[in-house]
Design a protein around this nucleic acid. Sequence first.
DNA 1: ACCTTTGTCATATAATAATAGTACACTATT
DNA 2: AATAGTGTACTATTATTATATGACAAAGGT
Lengths: 126, 126
Amino acid sequence: MIKFLLDYSSGMPIYRQIIDQIRFGIASGQLKLGEQLPTVRALAVELKVNLNTVSKAYKELEIRNILETQQGTGTFISQTAHIVPEKEREDKLREICTQFSSVALSYGFQIEDIIQTLRHIESSKK
Amino acid sequence: MIKFLLDYSSGMPIYRQIIDQIRFGIASGQLKLGEQLPTVRALAVELKVNLNTVSKAYKELEIRNILETQQGTGTFISQTAHIVPEKEREDKLREICTQFSSVALSYGFQIEDIIQTLRHIESSKK
DNA sequence: ACCTTTGTCATATAATAATAGTACACTATT
DNA sequence: AATAGTGTACTATTATTATATGACAAAGGT
């Protein structure tokens, strides 16, 4: 099961963040084809957002054939879900890195200090 | 002079994109301290957005002491821009790295890819 | 059959984002 | 003094985002 993480100060709408994380979750293998997603109500509670916000994200992905919904049963990753194009993954990675970089550097941090801190955080996770 | 580039389909509000690009421009050295920015009207025309949208971005940066405005003359990068007290820097570094790490990993990116991208961005700043 | 859980739909409300237009105040130049 | 160029302020309007409710429909278990 995927762990959703919202950034309420990013300026990106919540439903778009949900869409992104599902799409990239599939691309990165965190979400398997056919896997069931959290119910709209469960995810709404987990993310502390409205049911309609989650529903909007799911519905949009359903239109794109990335999700399949069975009313009364749940929402699933489509078996035929397309992979996010590699270029889009690279663009997204560069986008979030650029944004982070601008903030970090504006505080005067050096690239090596930043990387060292990131590695430390990563290694302390397990 | 900095080249602004908007992504109208990203979901991120335009005024926030302008804010981000100015901050990143300063951090990366594209914008020098004291340098004059485009006038609100000129930038509004260039970006094909409303005057008020640019004004909103400038005003917010002015509040944060990143920009200084002289009515009738123009808007400039502050000379004393964004120096963070030394004692807060370490906590801040860890904080923003943790936040960034969570977001990046939730997209399924690997730590080494992230670091490589950060290094690439850093080195491409000349 | 009944009930629960699921997704869906509809209405209303509020806040935010962006536009449009107008007017005003300040500064430098002529 | 007059003018052009600057930032600022204000009202109004529209679209988007998110919330709050309530009701309905479909699936599956009891």
